[in-house]
Simulated assay, not measured.
Amino acid sequence: MTSRKTSQTMKPATAAKKLSVYLEATPAEFQEGVVSRDELNALQADPPEWLQELRRDGPHPRQVVAARLGVSIGALARGGITEPLTTEQIKALKAEMPEWLEHERATQAEVRKEAARQKEKAAQQANPAQRRR
């Protein structure tokens, strides 16, 4: 008895997350079907016009909005941003630079700085020969 290899599939929400796009902005046929691993790979390798447009103009999901603003997803919630934003809205928010965004960006910079320090410390502990003198 031979077994046929079945293609791995995922829900549209999972595929949208992997593509970094807002599911509700995708075409209906994408939202209503299932996406195979091969289809996902094809979308990533040669994105159709709708995917290129979504990635360029939005609306963008929270993780993309947070990354483009240089803050965490939690910071968006604290700043009152609960809806997806378009690229233009993100640019406008950056230009406006409200106090909450300035504060959250500074906090995020500190978090990154501390993470880098911890990583360096761990590397030095792993290899004592690299310790600073």
Rank of each mutant, 00 (worst) to 15 (best):
R68W: 02
L23K: 00
Q44V: 06
L85P: 01
A115Y: 00
T9S: 07
A92K: 12
E29M: 05
P47W: 11
E49T: 11
Q31A: 13
G79H: 00
V34P: 01
T9Y: 03
A77L: 05
K94S: 10
R105T: 14
Q124K: 15
R62M: 10
E88N: 06
A42T: 05
I73F: 05
R131A: 15
A106P: 04
A28V: 15
G74P: 03
E96H: 09
E49G: 10
G80L: 00
P47Q: 12
A123T: 06
T87R: 08
A15N: 01
S20W: 03
A116R: 15
E114G: 01
M10D: 11
R105L: 12
Q8K: 07
K17I: 04
M1A: 14
R132Q: 11
Q118S: 14
R55M: 08
K121V: 02
E24P: 06
A16Y: 04
A25P: 06
E49V: 14
R68Y: 04
A25I: 06
L19P: 10
A67E: 14
P47D: 02
V71R: 09
T87E: 13
D38V: 12
A109R: 14
A16D: 07
A92L: 12
A25G: 14
P12Y: 01
P59N: 06
P61S: 13
